[in-house]
Computed example of a mutant assay.
Amino acid sequence: MLFDAASPDLSISTPSLAPGPAPLSPPAEAVRAARALAPRLFAQAAATDAEATFPGQEFAWLRAAGLLTAPLAPALGGAGLGAPAATEALLDVLRHVGRGNLAVGRLYEGHVNALLLIQLYGHAAQLQGWAADAAAGRLFGVWNTEDPAQGVRLEPLPGGRYRLFGAKTFASGAGYVHRPLVTGALAEGHGWQMFVLPADAQAPALDRSFWRPLGMRATASYRADLTGLEIGPADLLGPPNAYYRQPWFGGGASRFAAVQMGGAEAVFDETRRFLQRLGRTDDPYQRQRLGQMALLRESGRQWLRGAAARAALPADAAAGPQPAAAAYAGLVRTAIEQIGLAMLPLAERCVGARGLLQPEPFERLHRDLTHYLRQPAPDAVLADVGRFVLDGHDF
């Protein structure tokens, strides 16, 4: 059953601004809302840590906080987080959501990704319609991973329509996302076409047995079979092969890295809380480990600031490939993966076996972060960075 967009209004409360200071900009307001929401997401995370669940309540909170529309331009009712100048704010929002719950962060990052691509390639009528969907609480996502046996293809029908065949795997939010952005192969080798599937009207067949993960259980990343569904010209987004254009394809890695960094920060936060609660703050070895974890945390935050400065993606689809931006995003992705992998064993040593027992959150955090850090082709990404610098380029 699709997530009910008419969920109760559970708006988070924020203090009113005192007279005098200038009001926060919309991107800064979005960051403040995400920061305030993170503890609430964290407190709820254990309740949805199961393969047969979806964080619907959490997305009601995101909607009430204005975060479902925040990636949209102000003219479309959003906070403008998709603008290049707002990249740091966007990454901070994603980091805070990931700090609250990595599964929610993964799903929210897919929602953001879809809305950014829609604004990059959509025409006016599409922008208005899909922005209205986001405002109504409908969720977006990106389904790109092909089923190895039968990937998605589009077969032409009269009137510019297409019948779909094939399936996607790792289709995050399947059964709950109303507007997944999907890639499919056009006939006769004409390339890959993006389209936004109205999944509440054209529901794919889901294989839930596909999703038996180590972590990120609540992302509902099922196998989605689109065979027999039909789409029309208004559902097509951009020209063929637009999805893979650089720097947007590789440069988007900074966004999921920001969510991962939020998960690493949650590990730090909970390790500190655990040691403080048990009165183990005077142990010199615990202090040394926390110092190392603080170094890792600050390093990750600096990498995200670097991404905002060096890997901000242009909002104009006619912009050139900008290889430096894509290469720097590859560095950010790699650095934050290493930070997460270094943070986990330090936390394990700090909390010991006692800390890995429920209801402590470390076992879940370990599973979720370990699983989410496994993004595709990490070695190829770093090799591309090496090729970039060996060719005499720099950032």
Rank of each mutant, 00 (worst) to 15 (best):
Gly122Leu: 13
Ala253Thr: 05
Val389Glu: 09
Glu146Cys: 10
Ala103Gly: 15
Leu37Gly: 03
Leu115Cys: 11
Pro74Tyr: 01
Arg272Ser: 12
Pro239Val: 07
Leu296Ile: 13
Asp225Pro: 05
Asp207Trp: 08
Leu331Asp: 05
Arg138Glu: 12
His111Trp: 06
Ala70Ile: 02
Leu357Met: 12
Arg387Cys: 09
Gly392Lys: 01
Arg277His: 14
His393Glu: 07
Ala43Trp: 08
Gly137Asn: 02
Val259Arg: 04
Leu229Lys: 02
Val152Gln: 10
Leu2Glu: 15
Phe362Leu: 03
Asp384Phe: 01
Phe274His: 07
Asp368Tyr: 05
Glu348Thr: 14
Val31Gly: 00
Arg63Pro: 06
Ala377His: 14
Gln338Asp: 15
Gly20Met: 08
Gly66Thr: 01
Asp147Leu: 12
Tyr328Asn: 03
Leu296Tyr: 14
Gly82Val: 07
Gln126Lys: 03
Ala199Arg: 03
Leu313Met: 14
Leu107Phe: 06
Leu107Val: 01
Gly352Arg: 04
Gly173Pro: 05
Leu365Cys: 05
Tyr243Val: 11
Ala47His: 03
Tyr244His: 15
Gly160Val: 11
Glu337Asn: 12
Leu127Ile: 07
Ile231Gln: 00
Thr334Ile: 03
Ala257Thr: 05
Leu2Trp: 15
Leu115Gly: 05
Arg208Gln: 15
Pro361Asn: 03
Ala307Phe: 08
Ala329Gly: 07
Thr227Gly: 01
Leu2Ala: 09
Val104Asn: 09
Ala319Arg: 08
Leu127Val: 03
Gln358Gly: 12
Leu90Trp: 06
Glu270Cys: 14
Leu344Gln: 10
Leu91Pro: 02
Thr183Tyr: 02
Ala205Arg: 13
Met261Gly: 12
Phe256Thr: 07
Arg245Met: 14
